[in-house]
């Protein structure tokens, strides 16, 4: 997942695809967020009430189906997406990761490519 929420449709497409794959009984090995895609993992976005909440929607997938949501650490640090540990390590005064998201390395993308039968890229 290579783009952030709202600016591009990519995140919506990836979400609907993931939800459909789960409905069909497939296992989702991982959703890996890269480039601006890491912005999907913020818990500080406050979209208007009549709009979808992209990051909450991802969090629900993690919560209800155990889908692993991984933000690339290097991409996340560049763009100010930090979990508690990363914020502490970088001496920042707060963190902003949404529930269900985890920070990990790029190796998780390659590992997903090795493990999964299919890999689908969404982006701009």
């Amino acid at each position: 997942m290579n783009e952030g929420p709202y600016t591009h449709q990519a995140s919506d497409s990836a979400y609907h695809f993931t939800a459909a794959a789960l409905r069909a009984g497939h296992e989702i090995v991982r959703v890996f967020f890269y480039h601006d895609g890491v912005n999907n993992g913020t818990r500080l976005s406050v979209p208007p009430q009549d709009d979808r909440n992209v990051s909450e929607r991802w969090s629900e997938l993690a919560n209800e189906h155990g889908v692993e949501l991984i933000l690339c650490v290097a991409a996340a640090q560049r763009r100010g997406l930090l979990d508690e540990d990363e914020a502490k390590r970088a001496g920042k005064d707060s963190n902003n990761m949404a529930p269900g998201f985890q920070i990990s390395g790029l190796g998780q993308l390659i590992d997903a490519g090795i493990q999964a039968d299919r890999l689908v890229v969404f982006g701009d």
């Binding site: 290579n2 609907h16 459909a20 794959a21 409905r23 069909a24 299919r118 890229v121 982006g123």
Partner: peptide, 20 residues
């Protein structure tokens, strides 16, 4: 196709190439 059909296509074919 709908999203279910999209998922089915990714399994019908060996791999996907996204021309981003």
């Amino acid at each position: 196709v709908d999203y279910d059909g999209f998922v089915k296509l990714t399994t019908d074919y060996d791999k996907s190439q996204s021309w981003l």
